[in-house]
Nucleic acid binder design. Sequence first.
DNA 1: CTGTTAGCGCATTCAG
DNA 2: CTGAATGCGCTAACAG
Lengths: 333, 333
Amino acid sequence: MAGIDDVARAAGVSTATVSRALSGRGPVSAAARDRVLAAADRLGYVVSAAASSLASGRTRAVGVVVPFLDRWFFSTVLAGISDALVRQGYDITLYSVSTDATGRRRVFDDHLRRRRIDAVITIALELDAEESASLRGLGVPIVAIAGPNPLLTTLTVDDLAVGRLATTHLLELGHRRLAHIGADAVRDAGATVPGLRRRGFEEALAEAGIERALFEPADFTIEGGSDAADRALSSPAAPTAIFAASDEMAIGAILAARGRGLRVPEDVSVIGVDGHELGRWFGLTTVDQFARGQGERAADAVLAELDGAEPARGRGTLPFELVDRGSTAPPSR
Amino acid sequence: MAGIDDVARAAGVSTATVSRALSGRGPVSAAARDRVLAAADRLGYVVSAAASSLASGRTRAVGVVVPFLDRWFFSTVLAGISDALVRQGYDITLYSVSTDATGRRRVFDDHLRRRRIDAVITIALELDAEESASLRGLGVPIVAIAGPNPLLTTLTVDDLAVGRLATTHLLELGHRRLAHIGADAVRDAGATVPGLRRRGFEEALAEAGIERALFEPADFTIEGGSDAADRALSSPAAPTAIFAASDEMAIGAILAARGRGLRVPEDVSVIGVDGHELGRWFGLTTVDQFARGQGERAADAVLAELDGAEPARGRGTLPFELVDRGSTAPPSR
DNA sequence: CTGTTAGCGCATTCAG
DNA sequence: CTGAATGCGCTAACAG
């Protein structure tokens, strides 16, 4: 495999000039650059990541840390990140952190600390103080998508507002007996994404003077949503409307309702959050949060910081939007 | 950040011994190893990927090349790969190749050639001769999942048999007017995954003495499957059974059938391929191919090769299994 | 079993 | 604008 000195020889310049010409850093005459580029192309020369990184301190790679790979939201955000990063010649190094504590520590204490990446993007990760500190200790730009984290630069949807928007939509249709599927009151007590959506729900209800509502925790899967909706719908004071904190749970709720012989939205309204592509097929009304765009925004943000821009301190705000596809309507009871 | 010489000093040994103790390569006395491990732990030392890789030629990373990130099959296989690789301390570098020719070339000609990875796994990638050659030129183990490729070590389901299995299932139920949704006759003329499933369909029909069948190309999405099924079901000789080459298309077919007021399976049977988690909710009969397991198998295969095992020449075979969830039944017409 | 030595391939000084 | 020299941090011989 051709090395930088092969290129230097072929172009009749020194390795230093080859390096400058190929990286675009430092002055090179147009003539020299042309000869270098031609020689590099002819020889099929590609810079060695290890050597370049050892000498320069830069890696041209961004680490992306996710809790799940096989759920729609995460893979969609990841696709957005990938698009934006590849365009700029960056590689992606993927770190999937399970809930398993040991494996999780290994990612933060070992893998991420190998100096293999120039920046980190986290997706919907709930980090404890130690993990946040560990990330900061890397000394690279960090952008956290989804999940307000006081210790990091975040790029996040205002999930409190999302919860209020969805709930207000139901209230304006005239619903008074509502249920919320999502946050676990204990686990998500803090400012987690599920916790904020739940609080948005509660606040909107309080403002409307409604004191009672049903809460059913679920795990953000279709199955979890279905089970939770089943519990809610079998309660004595069954709700006329359900706000699920994700589209997958909302779809589960629709399926559960159908399974009980209830029509959506005539007998029960359902609204979700996400903008899952599947929602279209269920006529699901949702608060779209443009997952793919979130990934692109995050990638652009880290790239800007790598280009020397100031870190966007505090939190950047991501758009969201109510999309009415018909699964919500005025209550019939 | 602590370097290897800090650890060496703290442990009272040379850097060579630190390297040997930490990597497990080369002899080290138990006493020395213990002191090194303790010192490394205390100092929070983690080896620099670039320096280690430059000196050793190993990177402890595997490249994974995918055509899509945001489709169920790919993200599920990726999750399986990630699990298996992380357990062994390997990082994943992700390369998403679009259909865009320029971007695609960049991945093969630049990104993959930076010597950032010890091995490559490709998922359902249709490679032309040049791309295959480019991969082989990397000089690292390569495992291709899905997509028989005469030029590479592959790990693949026997998609011809999958096509025959699904089709035979329909024939045994008594269907005679069948439709297939999937391969494009021109694009997938070769030994592609869609092409093989289609040929399995054709062969099974031929053996049953059936000469005519409907073919509707589609793009492996729910929407594509729905449109294709719509076309098939509106043809003069509408089929009584549909074999879709993926579960997402099969779900689209079920939705299209429902949209036309047809019952599944009473009016039309539908069978898919994949084992998509969503299938359960549609009662979809399918040929499960255990996507997550495929990823794990592929990861294990490259790890074995990296451990010095002989490359499993030719093709490894992956399991598949008919799962009857009720969307197929004898024809009523 | 251990330490010494010599690079791995490139980016960056610093002179020129 | 260019080239020569230095070292990034670690691993792999080799000799002891």
